[in-house]
Every structure is written in C-alpha cells, then in structure tokens.
Write a protein that binds this DNA or RNA. Structure first.
Lengths: 339, 339
DNA sequence: ACCCTTAATGCAAACGTTTGAGCCTATATA
DNA sequence: TATATAGGCTCAAACGTTTGCATTAAGGGT
C-alpha cells in the first residue's frame, strides 16, 4: 500500500488540501506548517501520484514521439538515436517525458496515434514523417490535436521542422559541378518521400542553373540502406557513359556505392566522386573519408520539441516552420585534386 | 470538452457502470444493450480516458526504458534503435507503451528512475547498463520495483538479459588463433564496464587455453567510437612487435582501426586481421567486409520485455537470466587466405 | 399465489489528487 | 464594542473511470 497524501495529512494533523498546497509551495500556507509537513513527507517517503494529479490537472507532461519503419533495416541508423537524444534533452529540461511509439505500418501508425490522442496520456505528438500524404497527419489536423512534424508533408496546416532538402541537393550538385563534373548521378530517390524528392529537385535545379542536361538514367531509386547502394551503383556503372560523380541520399548508400566502385577497379574520388548525406560518425573514418552533409538531427529534435511546447502553451492556432541549417562537409571522397 | 463515459450513459439512457461493462465486454450485459451502447460510442466518437482508468486500476500499461549516454557520441549507434525496436515490437503486441528516458549522467539516471518508480506512471523498468556498480540498480532492488537489466551488474538480485560476452571474446580470439595468429590485440577495453571486461576475459582465457602469452601491452582502453579506434590503433602499430590481429570491442572501433592500418601502408587482413563486435549493417559493405559478431540487439529487447512481463505478472520473487545467443560472422577482414 | 433463481442493470464508493469557496481566529480599525 | 481584514486552514466537489453490492423484473417450480 503506497503512502498517499491523506496519510501525510493524518500524520501531520492537517487536511489533505494543506498538504497539497505545501507540495505546490502555495503562499497561503504558513512557514511552520510547511516545514512540519515537508518533514513528514520525507520521513514517510511520500511521492505524489502522477496519475491522480494528471487526472485533475488534465496534464500529464508526457508527449508522444512516433517513429515509422520499426521493422525496416533503415531504422538501424544513427539518425534516430541522435534525433531522440535531441528531443529527450529538451524534454528533460522542461520536465516532460516522452512516450516512444515506433510503428511498423501506416495502419499501425494511425492506430497508435488514435490511442495517443484520445487516451489522454499524451499532450502532444512529434511525428517523424516525410511522406507526401500522411493519413495520420490528416487525422491529427482534423481533431486539432497539438503536434509537430519532423519532415514535411503536403498539408499546409501543420507545424514542422526540417532541413532545407532542396538546398542540400542543390549544394551537393553544385559542389561537384565546381569540381568540373558534368555527369552526376543521384542515388536513392524514393518517390513518395519528400526528403528524397526535395533533394533530387535541388540537384536538378543546380544542373539547370549550370546548363547541364538532366538525364533520367542518372537517377536511381532506393531505400536508405547500404546494400542497395552497392547494388544500384553497379547499375549506374553499367550506364554509358557512366557518371563521374554520385550524390547518394544517405551516407549508408554512399558507403555501398563506394564499395561497388572500388570492386569495379575504379578509384574514389579520382574516377568517380561520391558524396552522401547525414554525416554519420563513420563518414570521417571511411576509406576514403566521405563528403557529406551534416543535418544536425539533434537540433531537429530539440527544435521540434520547443515548437511543440509553443503549440501547447498558446491557444491561438498558427502554423510554424523551422529550417535547421545543414552544413556541407567536404572530405576526400569528392575532392578531385586528391585529398 | 471531451466526451466521457457519462455522456454516453446519458445518451444511451443507461448508467455509467453499464457503459463501462460494455467496454469491458462483460457477459453481464445483454446483447441488445451492448449493441446500442457501442453504436452511441461510435457516433459520439468516445474513447475511454486512460488516466482515469489507470487511477482506479492501478495499472498504466506503460513501462519505462532507461538508456544512458544520451550526450555521448556512442549513443549514435545502430545498436540503440535496434534494441528499441525489439522492446517496442513486443510491447506493442502486449498492449504496452514505452516511456523512453535517455539520461546523461548517473545522477540524472537516479533522478529519472525515482520519478518513474514513485510517480506511478510506469509499472516496470528496463534499464540498459553494464556498469559493475549501479546505484540505480541498488535503488530499484531496495524498493522492490519490477525491473529488468539489459547488460549485467554485480548485484545478484536482478533479472537480466545479456549476451555471453565472455564467450564472444573467447570465440573471436580462438578464431584468430586458428588462423595462425599468435599476437592478438584487444581494443576497447573499458574498465568499469562489464561488457568489455567480460569480452576481454574471454579473449584472455582463449590465449591461455592455447598456451599463448597474455601481454598487457596488447590491450588498449577506449570508448565505442570510431575516432578512438583510429587513434588507438596507431598506438598499437607502434608496439614492437606489433600485433597481427586486432579484436575490437565494437565495429565502429574496428572501422577506425582499419583506417589506421591502411594509412600505415599495411593490408587488412594480410598484414593485420581485424574483427569487430555488433555486426552493424555496414560491416558487410566495408572495405574489406568486417568480421563481426551478431549480438541480436532486437532479441535482447524482446527478451527483456518478456522477462519484465513475467516479473509483473508473478508475485513470487525470483531472479531470471537470459542469454541471447551471439553469432560469429566471418568476413574478409579476418581471413588470411584472402577472401 | 408463493418463493427462488437468474439475468440485467443501477448505485455509490473508491482511486489520489487539486482547488474554489467557506470558515474560523486574531488583530487592526472605526 | 462592533466590524472589517487578513491569514491559515478545512470542506467538499471534481477529474473519469471501475466494481462490489443492491435492486428490479421476469420466469420457473411447487
């Protein structure tokens, strides 16, 4: 039997309300009483029951974090812990706890969000998604539940935080163009996913701006895992003429691509330059070190949480966006003059 | 104003108890009433309030997962998402939700655990730790809160699930010995962390069993990040005679080590064989592909959750252990006859 | 016509808090 | 002396459920 506020009240010969106000440090309680009650609380090792408190306060100080792709191998990516660390770090600071819901399918996601929103456990939701159309997002918008998206969707009525993926694609392409490359491939386009599409569009725009032809053959689709990078790079190597540079939508893809290139007896970056995105810790220690783009997943997380807080604390409806700056990190894998 | 059980009751002209029993699908309610109430519930889009339910049931169906090292770079490791996926997957199945608490320091960990245990939000805790001595574990044991450790500690009064790290170390060493190596280094020993110590002891035992000398110079300490693998490998290369094989306590360390070896103008595996542990997705696509040990983080997670469930559902106190089998995956980085 | 059983439902307390309103008591003001 | 004014506290309702017990009605056996 756990010790409750009434036990304390009885022992201290005051009412439960008084104890409650002592906990809340209300000025309406005399110093003497406060001291007495606090002492007894300590003695009896009392800790308030959060559930009961939440019930009356209608506030749990818990937010839900919904991550998709639980089952896919792409979930095994350093991006996720970094993001979670970011969210958790700022959540801790503000005394919020996070309820992690990693879901497998879109149906599961919807079901989970339904539980989180209607169940009253979570006050808000951070949703990681980059699908064009997300029924989950529609649902959240419809019922007016506070949430923030990490990534981007078509729906304009959402708060989101993201990198400028168009710019990332543009900069990477421009980087290669400046190195004299004319035939640049784009690896890892995944239709239906805004991230990859935005990056691809940025890449395309850079080509246009520099009067380079866009060749559909130079764009290959895939998911974010190194195995595919390897296989798809083989395809690209078979194209005639083959590319002299490859932008991979993720470092893991890039690692796979490099392996395929090296196995074909070619050199990176001398024969083919390679760049990835995400700047995973290993990029620096790969052979050759991989040019990549630091997307600051940690900041994405902290910013998303802060934004959610803003939403929670303001009753006026408004749609905020935040762009987390990304940073091109040039390493040997894309340097022509040998790094 | 959210719709409550009373709203439903009123509309259906029954009592709240009846509605409650309909929700619970109690046999004491007639089919006709059930149907009527269910229909109204749907019409009014009613969803039971979990907080209120938890209060009376004394059961939240939420478990806490406490992960350390939030701030450290080593948290950016595929191990964590995989583990979380495992926990989440089996938690989902049993209708549990997980509260993720990633903490920075030992103090923070203790504080967090205190909140989780006393607050009444979580019914049990999964704690990731491999410290010899964990004040958090002592605390949990003392107050008798249901928890499971992933990893291992000195305290015998805990339920834990882990790999057989001694065996892992032993097998890796033996693998190299069978390849004819006589001077094998161990990279990544971290005193105070059971994982690395167990692995190191396994390695040591294998040397003994094959009448090979154990040389303290061949053991270097570090954390699990590739940067250190690189730096420490350089140290090892300076030793005379230098090792002909290196066991790294983690794949990321191994990757760093390989880079250092290659930069020194040496070949892997011809001059120096290398093996890691954890079998990260990239191991297969590294150059050369990295010999590693699959530790099945996903299974660690599922098993830990199942064990916690057992603890929660049985009132007799008993201490369970589970060993998740690990699997040596031999790749080119450790094959002498060129893979 | 009576009692007993069974099925279906309602009543009210309980879970552990918070909080607005009200009630004392003592002191200051008229 | 009566009256306002705080200060310090208590009362009781409320938050939204669940659940043991009571109640009602109907049917079956004598």
């Amino acid at each position: 039997m756990r010790v409750t506020i009434n036990d304390i009240a009885k022992k201290a010969k005051v009412s439960a309300s008084t104890v409650s106000r002592v906990i809340a440090d209300s000025p309406r309680i005399s110093a003497a009483t406060k001291e007495k009650v606090l002492k007894i609380m300590k003695e009896m090792n009392y800790h308030p029951n959060m559930i009961a408190r939440s019930l009356v306060n209608r506030s749990t100080r818990i937010i839900g974090v919904v991550l998709p792709g639980l089952a896919e191998q792409s979930f095994q990516h350093p991006f996720f812990p970094e993001l979670l660390a970011g969210i958790g770090s700022s959540a801790n600071q503000k005394g919020y706890k996070i309820l992690l819901a990693n879901v497998d399918t879109v149906d599961e996601e919807q079901q989970m969000v339904k539980e989180l929103t209607y169940g009253g456990i979570t006050e808000g939701i951070i949703l990681l998604t980059s699908r064009d159309q997300s029924p989950t997002v529609e649902q959240l918008v419809k019922i007016g539940f506070p949430f923030v998206v990490i990534g981007r969707t078509d729906n304009p009525c959402v708060n989101w935080v993201d990198n400028d993926n168009f710019l990332i694609g543009y900069q990477l392409a421009e980087h290669f163009i400046q190195q004299g490359h004319r035939r640049i491939a784009f690896l890892g386009y995944s239709p239906g996913y805004m991230v990859t599409r935005d990056r691809m569009h940025g890449y395309k725009k850079a080509l246009e701006d520099h009067q380079l032809p866009f060749d559909q053959e130079m764009v290959v689709e895939s998911q974010f895992i190194s195995g595919q990078g390897y296989d798809l790079m083989k395809l690209l190597l078979a194209r005639k003429p083959r590319p002299t540079a490859v932008i991979a939508c993720d470092d893991l893809l890039a690692f796979g691509a490099i392996k395929a290139i090296q196995e074909a007896g070619l050199q990176v970056p001398d024969d083919i330059g390679v760049a990835g995105i995400n700047n995973v810790p290993l990029a620096d220690y790969y052979n050759p070190p991989l040019t990549s783009v630091k997307i600051n997943a940690f900041s994405l997380g902290t910013k998303a949480f802060e934004m959610l807080c803003t939403v929670l604390n303001s009753n006026v409806q408004s749609y905020n966006r935040a762009i987390i700056p990304a940073e091109l990190v040039v390493r040997s894998s894309s340097r022509r003059e040998k790094g």
